[in-house]
């Protein structure tokens, strides 16, 4: 289960962002995970929730968007979605395809709590 290592990388990147940009509480971290990235979202959340407790991200949630697999045919130039793990062009049956999406493992955003200004008196 390498999702624990992945969760650790996510935490390190976000802690670094907090430090360099002097950010407040991180409510959520947005992730894009490709359907053929080899990462299982449930396992990633499980790993993240286990190791976040010892950090300032102990209340942070992951918001995961799963990206379907899509490719472009090198032969006929048409784009298509890869369904049922068939990696060939549905128009001309060529197996020479370029992956366009589905392999992502990216942090796309952070949601930061805005500090409320406390008025005196």
């Amino acid at each position: 289960m390498h999702e624990l290592s992945i969760a650790n990388s996510i935490i390190n990147i976000v802690l670094d962002e907090i430090k360099t940009k002097n950010l407040g509480e991180v409510k959520a971290i947005g992730l894009k995970i490709g359907a053929i990235s080899g990462i299982f979202p449930d396992a990633l959340e499980f790993g993240f929730d286990a190791i976040k407790l010892e950090t300032v991200l102990c209340k942070t949630k992951l918001e995961i968007e799963v990206i379907p697999i899509a490719g472009k045919c090198i032969n006929c130039s048409k784009s298509f979605e890869v369904r049922e793990l068939v990696f060939s062009c549905p128009h001309c049956q060529s197996t020479s395809i370029k992956m366009e999406q589905g392999e992502e493992l990216d942090i796309t955003y952070m949601e930061i709590a805005e500090e409320l200004e406390v008025e005196d008196g």
Partner: peptide, 16 residues
């Protein structure tokens, strides 16, 4: 209230 900060960063950028 929250603000969203965009971040386009590969999780494995250090490894890569």
């Amino acid at each position: 209230m929250t603000t969203t900060i965009k971040l386009e960063k590969k999780v494995l950028s250090e490894n890569d």
